[in-house]
Amino acid sequence: MHVNQLGILNQTSQPAAFGGAFRYEFMMQLRRPALWIGALLLCPFLFNHFNAFYLPPNGPPTVEQSVTQWMSFNALFYPIIAGLLIADRYARDRKTRTEELFHTMPTTVGTRLFGKYLGSVLATLVPLFLVYMVGVALILANWHTIGVLPMALALFAALMLPAVLFVGAFSIACPTFMWTVLYQVLFVCYWFWGNFLNPKIGIPTLNGTLLTPSGVHISRSFFPLGVPSYRGFSFAPEPLTNGFASLGLLLGCALIALFAAWGIVRWQRDQA
């Protein structure tokens, strides 16, 4: 690598640029009051009737079911907040005019886009992780066990992480070509349509398919509990292939959305 008199690299280090975008997007998202306010506003809803739903004697018959049910409930609602809060990350670069400055730098659009995506997604998960772990701690304390803690962490990684990676990718990608507020409205509608609409009523929906973003198939195949259902949450075991297929589809769609966004931004820049 050629270094000039000042010791500054004349080659562009894409990993350094990716690391920079990741680190600062993570930091900026984590510092956002809206992120913490959003998580706090969700708390009364998530913790409503917590005793009755998750704790003995009225809750599920096993601690594993309690934790799985707690995760499933989180995974149904928190990605809405995550999707909304990630949606303005790209639009903000246009609003603050940093995009113009970034276009004058040797870093590729893809490097910045992927760094921004991963940084903002992981930061968005931090408040949720804390809220989730408070619930897990309450459950484990009531069951007088910490043996299920690894399972609780694995549930978070297998259900919540893919869900937020999935919605995060679309929340970064769609605002590259559409009005952010319009995307946010459409996203909320999509979430309820794709996760809550009962397929039995005859309206086509993603709910129940492998593309259900809240991860019911991942939950049933990776964490089989041998119980058909409890208070509307189905724990009926499914083959492992269903879990992998659902995971692959969610992450694959996220990657496609990101590559599409990369192409759109490049095209927009070339048209300038």
Binding site: T12, A17, M105, P106, T107
Partner: peptide, 9 residues
């Protein structure tokens, strides 16, 4: 941040 985007690793 800008230095990182300019590739100063």
């Amino acid at each position: 941040y800008i230095a990182l985007l300019k590739g100063m690793d």
